[in-house]
Computed example of a mutant assay.
Amino acid sequence: MRPTAFLASVGTALPGDPVDNAALSKVLGVNEDWIEVFIGTRTRHFARDLGTGAVRWSLADLCAQAAQEALAAPGVDPSAIDFVVLGTATPDTLMPATVNHVADQLDLDQVPTLQLQSGCAGAVQALGVAQAMIASGQYRTGLVIGGDVCSKHLDLRRDVAGAAPADLVNYVLFGDGAGAAVVTDEPRGQRLALRHVLNRFTGLGRSPGQVIEWFGLADRYDDRQALTEDYKAIEESVPVMAVEILWEMLDELDWEPEQVDYLLPPQLSGRMTRRITEALDVPTAQEVSCVADTGNNGNALPFLQIEKLLERMSGAEKALAVAVESSKWIKAGFALEKV
C-alpha cells in the first residue's frame, strides 16, 4: 500500500512589496514591454533593496516566517514537530545549513533537521522525504519548508542594457520567497492527503539547463557569471517533460485525467506556464498558478500554489502538481486529495 501523509497547514512568505515591470525596467535599464511579452510575469518580490543592494531578509528569515504561519494554523500543535526538512537551491551559507538557523528562529530543539540542495524539485523532494519519515512510524508530525533568495546571484551594478536575451532573462525571471507545510500521520487541520510523490533524475548524459556557481575565496575574482541558463533548451524540454510526468503520475495513481479537479503546472514564468498548461491539456482541471505575480522563486512555488489551491478546494477533490528542474533535468510532482 502506498504510504500516505497529510498536509495539516500551509504558510508562505514574500519579502516586501511587489516589484512591477515598470520599476524593474527602470533599475535594469531594459525595455518594460520586452519583460511583459518575453517573460509574461507582472510582479515579483525581492529580499534585497533594488536601489542600494542591501539585504533586508535572509532565506532563513523568510522560511521562518512561512513556517510560523503554518504552525499558527488551526489544528496544528507547534510542540508536536518531530523533524524539519528544507529544500533550497540558494542557502544563506555553505555552513551552517540554513535549516538550522530556521529551527533556531522557531525555537525548535532536539529534532532532526535535513537540508536538500536542489532547484525547482527541492520542495517536492522535501515532501517525499517527509512522507517516508512519517511512513517509517518513528515520526508523527514534521515541518517541510521550501524557499529561495535568487536575487543574491544578480549583480545589480552590471550594465545589462546590451545583454543578450538568454543572459538578461535571469534578471527578470526570478523572485524571492518561502513556503512551509506541517505534515502529519493522520488527517488534521486542512486534511489534505499526500497520495504520491514523484522524484526522478533523468539527465544522464545531458548538459545542464541551468547553473548557479558557488564562488570560493580562490575564484571570487573570476569573470564567470554566477547564474547561467540555456533558456532555449528549457523552452524545448520542459513542456515535453511535464506531459511525461503528468501521464506517469496518473498511471501510478490509477487516476483518469477527468478525475483531476486541479492542476498545479510548473511555474517557470507567466509565458512558459501558459505554454506548458496548454501542452498538459487537462480541460476538466482548474489551473492553479502564481508565478505571474510572485516571479519564479524556486522552492517556494509549490507551497504558494497549495495555498491558492486550499482557497478553492472543497469536498473530496483531487489535485496534481507537476514540477521540472532544468539544472540537471529532474522530473518531479505530487498528488493531493482532500479527505
Rank of each mutant, 00 (worst) to 15 (best):
residue 2 R to K: 15
residue 4 T to N: 11
residue 6 F to E: 00
residue 8 A to F: 04
residue 11 G to F: 00
residue 11 G to I: 00
residue 12 T to K: 10
residue 15 P to N: 01
residue 17 D to V: 07
residue 24 L to S: 06
residue 26 K to W: 12
residue 30 V to G: 03
residue 30 V to I: 15
residue 31 N to E: 09
residue 34 W to P: 00
residue 48 R to C: 03
residue 49 D to K: 06
residue 56 R to V: 12
residue 67 A to W: 01
residue 69 E to P: 07
residue 74 P to C: 08
residue 78 P to D: 07
residue 79 S to V: 14
residue 83 F to A: 03
residue 84 V to W: 00
residue 86 L to T: 05
residue 87 G to K: 11
residue 87 G to P: 13
residue 88 T to K: 04
residue 90 T to V: 05
residue 92 D to T: 02
residue 92 D to V: 02
residue 92 D to I: 02
residue 98 T to Q: 02
residue 100 N to F: 09
residue 101 H to M: 06
residue 112 P to E: 08
residue 113 T to Q: 13
residue 117 Q to N: 12
residue 119 G to V: 02
residue 125 Q to W: 05
residue 126 A to M: 11
residue 135 A to R: 13
residue 137 G to C: 09
residue 138 Q to P: 07
residue 140 R to L: 13
residue 140 R to V: 08
residue 145 I to V: 15
residue 148 D to R: 06
residue 150 C to D: 07
residue 157 R to D: 15
residue 158 R to P: 04
residue 165 P to S: 10
residue 165 P to D: 09
residue 167 D to P: 02
residue 167 D to W: 05
residue 173 L to K: 00
residue 174 F to Q: 01
residue 177 G to Y: 05
residue 181 A to G: 06
residue 181 A to S: 09
residue 184 T to K: 11
residue 190 Q to P: 08
residue 191 R to G: 04
residue 194 L to S: 03
residue 195 R to L: 01
residue 195 R to N: 04
residue 196 H to K: 09
residue 196 H to L: 14
residue 196 H to F: 14
residue 198 L to D: 03
residue 200 R to W: 10
residue 201 F to D: 09
residue 202 T to R: 13
residue 204 L to Q: 15
residue 205 G to F: 11
residue 206 R to L: 14
residue 207 S to R: 12
residue 207 S to P: 03
residue 215 F to W: 10
residue 218 A to F: 06
residue 219 D to I: 08
residue 223 D to Y: 04
residue 228 T to V: 15
residue 232 K to D: 12
residue 232 K to I: 12
residue 233 A to V: 10
residue 243 V to G: 02
residue 252 E to V: 12
residue 253 L to R: 09
residue 254 D to F: 08
residue 255 W to H: 06
residue 256 E to R: 14
residue 257 P to K: 12
residue 262 Y to Q: 06
residue 264 L to N: 05
residue 267 Q to T: 08
residue 267 Q to W: 02
residue 271 R to V: 03
residue 274 R to G: 11
residue 275 R to H: 14
residue 276 I to W: 01
residue 278 E to P: 05
residue 285 A to N: 12
residue 290 C to H: 11
residue 291 V to A: 02
residue 292 A to Y: 08
residue 301 L to D: 02
residue 302 P to G: 11
residue 303 F to Q: 02
residue 306 I to N: 00
residue 312 R to Y: 00
residue 317 E to M: 10
residue 319 A to D: 01
residue 320 L to I: 04
residue 321 A to M: 15
residue 325 E to L: 07
residue 330 I to K: 05
residue 330 I to R: 06
